[in-house]
């Protein structure tokens, strides 16, 4: 979690902090034929620069490498990254008693919402800020915890409807220890669009994964980031790896978007992100 930022903004004021950085068991990256086991304290820089991850799970390595700045990636951990609280500016300012802070209003709904959600935004318009969560969801990762044991990543992120005060299924006191990504042979890719080239959050990001057979993408899925309160997964099943089919799928995927007054442009970005990330999977075959 980005606890220090929250403390600086007077959103959290914990009486006591426990330092996890001394627990070696939470560190390290192991890759074998079954998949990758990534310690919750592995840094984004370690993940971005890991040759086996880059080969087997490029979406994750790319997502980690796009986050923040080199300085931040050297200290930021993947456990912290997937547990970041919303970047919504109304959430980040103590003066706004929004739903996520136990209040009764989403100020973004009729306020400044150019960076906010275009899906699942009827209650709270936050977007999930994690790059790596987008990739992990596309790669069907499993979250291992000291507590309930294993949580499939599809069940890890919760919507405001499910629990307005939290973004994950972690119980109070439960700790993420590892992330496991099964080796399936799927191709994957990650990309994002943003306003500046470093030190910025994505306007829209996308991780795509699929198995490729001839000119067909099997088990194709795209996860969009920064469009909904959770990483937004779209399952496409079997799809022809042609521009026309992928464009059609992209158009279909954004049809249900419910943009707010100032973020209609994100629908166009989402469409483009889906199309380009899938095309990248198909292109890799040539």
């Amino acid at each position: 979690m980005d606890l220090l930022d929250l403390m600086k903004s007077s959103i959290r004021a914990p009486g006591r902090l426990v330092n996890l950085l001394t627990i070696d068991e939470l560190k390290g990256i192991d890759v074998d034929t079954s998949g990758a086991t990534i310690g919750a304290l592995a840094t984004l820089a370690e993940i971005a620069d890991h040759p086996d991850l880059a080969r087997m799970f490029p979406a994750l390595a790319l997502a980690a490498g796009h986050a923040a700045t080199p300085q931040v990636r050297n200290v930021a951990t993947i456990g912290g990254n997937i547990l970041q609280r919303p970047r919504c500016w109304y959430f980040r300012m103590a003066q706004y008693p929004c739903l996520k802070k136990g209040g009764d209003t989403c100020f973004a709904m009729d306020g400044e919402n150019k960076y906010h959600a275009i899906f699942e935004n009827s209650l709270c318009a936050m977007v999930h800020p994690s790059n790596t969560a987008v990739a992990l969801l596309a790669l069907d990762a499993v979250v291992r915890t000291a507590g309930s044991g294993e949580i499939p990543i599809r069940k890890f992120f919760v919507t405001p409807d499910q629990d307005i005060l939290r973004e994950s299924a972690l119980a109070e006191g439960e700790l993420v220890t590892q992330l496991f990504i099964p080796a399936t042979g799927a191709r994957s890719h990650y990309l994002e669009f943003r306003e500046r080239q470093s030190f910025d959050w994505a306007l829209v990001s996308a991780a795509a994964a699929a198995e490729l057979e001839g000119q067909t993408l099997n088990n194709a899925r795209v996860v969009l980031g920064s469009v909904a309160p959770i990483p937004w997964r779209i399952d496409l099943g079997e799809i022809a790896a042609t521009d026309e089919a992928l464009d059609r799928a992209a158009d279909e995927a954004v049809r249900g978007a419910t943009p707010l007054a100032k973020n209609k442009y994100k629908v166009q970005l989402a469409r483009t992100a889906i199309r380009r990330s899938l095309r990248e999977l198909a292109r890799a075959t040539e």
Binding site: T69, R87, W89, Y90, M93, Q95, Y96, F107, D110, G111, E112, E195, R196, Q197, S198, F199, D200, W201
Partner: peptide
């Protein structure tokens, strides 16, 4: 020209991005 804007919340008159992450000064990559 491309990135910097102090965003005001019209309902409260507060600047919403009083920090260097959300007020976007160009980086060397820009």
């Amino acid at each position: 020209g491309l990135t910097e804007e102090r965003v005001y919340d019209l309902e409260t008159g507060r600047p919403l991005n009083p920090n260097l992450t959300d007020y976007k000064v160009p980086t060397i990559l820009d």
